[in-house]
Computed example of a mutant assay.
Amino acid sequence: MIKFQYPIFLLIIPIVILLTILKLKKKQSSGIGFSELTLLKVAAKKNHLTSLPYILRCLTLILLSLALAGPIKENSIENNEASGIDIIVAIDVSGSMEGLDFSTKREKQTRLDAVKKVVKEFIDSRPNDRIGVVAFAGAPYIASPLTLDHSWLIKRLDMLQTGMIEGGTAIGSAIASASNSLNRVESKSKIVILLTDGENNSGVIEPRQAAEAANALGVKIYTVGAGKEGKAPYEVNGFFGSDIQYVDVKIDEEMLTDVATSTGGLYFRAKDINSLEEIYNRINKMEKTTRVSNKTVLYKYYFMIPLIIGFLLFLIEIILTSTKLRRVY
Rank of each mutant, 00 (worst) to 15 (best):
P7E: 05
T263W: 03
K27I: 07
Q5C: 02
L64I: 13
L10K: 07
K26F: 09
T261G: 05
D113M: 13
P53V: 04
F314W: 14
V328Y: 06
S262N: 10
Q28A: 10
G227V: 08
I13M: 12
L63H: 08
E78L: 07
L24R: 05
A69V: 07
K26G: 15
L112P: 02
S293F: 03
A143G: 02
V133Y: 00
N281R: 14
L100Q: 12
I319R: 01
L37M: 14
V259M: 06
G198M: 07
A232T: 14
L49R: 09
M255R: 03
G203S: 08
D243N: 11
E74S: 13
N281C: 04
K26Q: 15
I305W: 15
K108F: 09
L64T: 05
S51L: 04
P140Q: 02
L61T: 00
L56R: 00
I8M: 12
I142C: 06
S151Y: 09
V89M: 11
D124G: 01
K155W: 11
T289A: 11
E229P: 02
I12M: 10
I17D: 05
G31D: 12
C58F: 11
K105D: 13
L52T: 08
R156Y: 08
A213N: 03
T110Y: 04
Y234H: 12
S202V: 04
